[in-house]
Amino acid sequence: MDRELVELVDQERVRSGELLTIGAFAARSRLSPKALRLYDRLGLLPPAHVDATTGYRYYRADQAERARMVALLRRLDMPLARIAEVVEPAGLDGPSAADRLACYWAEAEARFASQRTLAEYLRGRLSGRSSEMYGKFVVETVDVPEQVLITQTRHILPDELPTWIGAALGRLEDAAQACGGTTGAPFVAYHAEVSQESDGPAEACVPVADEAAARAWAEEHGRAWDTGVRVEPARRLAYTRITKAQVANPQIHAAFEAVEEWIAERGLNHAGPCREVYFADWDAAGPQDAVCDVAFPVR
């Protein structure tokens, strides 16, 4: 079929209402032409037909339901990539699409709850009531001898951190069996801030007994796991002990700040990256059981 005939056919389909211009479809779907062009580029809502000569987009009337669904999902602040999973043609009306939406909303509610807690903490901090809200943290010092550490380092963002800590320390504790066994509590050292604007890195560390065996293990597995071995010199740690329920934002931030204030009040200097030392069985611990020391090396 030559181009002129194709154009005539397209014009007839538009006149008959089988195809809608982008302007007409925008009015029917209550989306702007700009949004429709974006959704086309992202593959969320491709037009039924694109004129090869003019580039004009045409839509079928029955695409309006999909367009409205995309618009409603955007009102939930759902990322476009997640919307694509929900409105894929095979799942738009099926339970799998509903399950994907439910999963997204559960994640969103967890995020809102975390943000609500953080907002309460910030209000308390700005009003000078932080210690009333979270209690007074008791800060002490402890001397830690030189340690051989097997480690795994990763640049990471806050949402990924809890899962990564458990997985990384679990792998390293399993590996410690080939390195003479563990000689101390595992910990995570933060070489830079982990936040939405900064990805660390964070370093999971497990003290082991046999340095030679540890280096042999790292030589074999280091590339696959991004692991290494280092010897950390003897250190004095200033720390406060927190419960399992407090190993979450913003309580753990308040604990870090309490230790930093204690260090500054005594004129001490930081001597290494801050850390979380996990000395208890996390899975067996209850919410009010002490599980972690928030610590700073000092001199």
Rank of each mutant, 00 (worst) to 15 (best):
D2G: 03
T117G: 14
D40H: 13
R125Y: 14
W217V: 02
T21H: 07
Q63L: 08
S32K: 10
G166P: 03
L122C: 09
A258K: 02
V277F: 06
E18H: 13
A271Y: 03
A48V: 09
V294K: 05
Y104I: 11
A192S: 14
P207R: 08
V14Q: 08
P33S: 06
R123C: 06
D226N: 15
S131T: 15
H191S: 08
P89V: 03
E7P: 00
A102R: 15
V188L: 00
S32N: 01
D77P: 12
E88K: 11
W164Q: 09
A113C: 07
R75G: 07
A218P: 01
R171H: 14
A102Y: 03
A234N: 02
D293R: 13
T240D: 01
A248P: 00
G184R: 05
K136R: 14
P233V: 09
A271I: 00
V231E: 00
G55R: 11
W282N: 04
E160P: 01
G17S: 11
V144H: 00
E160L: 09
R37C: 06
C292Q: 08
V14G: 05
I150P: 01
A168W: 08
F256K: 13
T183F: 10
H221L: 03
V259H: 01
A113K: 05
V188G: 10
P273T: 10
E260L: 12
H191C: 01
R275D: 00
R3E: 15
K244G: 08
V294Y: 04
L237V: 01
I83E: 03
A202C: 06
R28C: 12
P89E: 12
G55L: 05
D40R: 08
G94D: 08
V294M: 11
V247W: 08
A175C: 04
Y56P: 02
E120K: 11
P79Q: 13
A108V: 14
L42S: 02
A258Y: 06
P287N: 06
L44W: 00
R111V: 13
Q11T: 06
H253P: 02
R66P: 04
P201E: 01
F256E: 03
V70P: 06
A290G: 01
P46F: 04
V259Y: 02
L31G: 03
L172H: 14
S198Q: 13
C274Y: 01
G17T: 08
D281Y: 00
R299E: 04
D289I: 07
E193D: 06
T21F: 13
G267F: 00
K136S: 10
Q251L: 12
W105N: 11
W164F: 07
K34Q: 13
R275C: 14
E260W: 04
A102K: 01
A234G: 11
G166Y: 08
S114D: 10
Y121Q: 15
D77N: 15
G17V: 09
E109K: 05
E132T: 07
E173T: 09
R171E: 14
F112L: 14
Y39L: 14
G43A: 07
G272P: 02
D2K: 12
E109Q: 11
T117A: 15
W105L: 15
E232D: 05
F187T: 06
A178H: 10
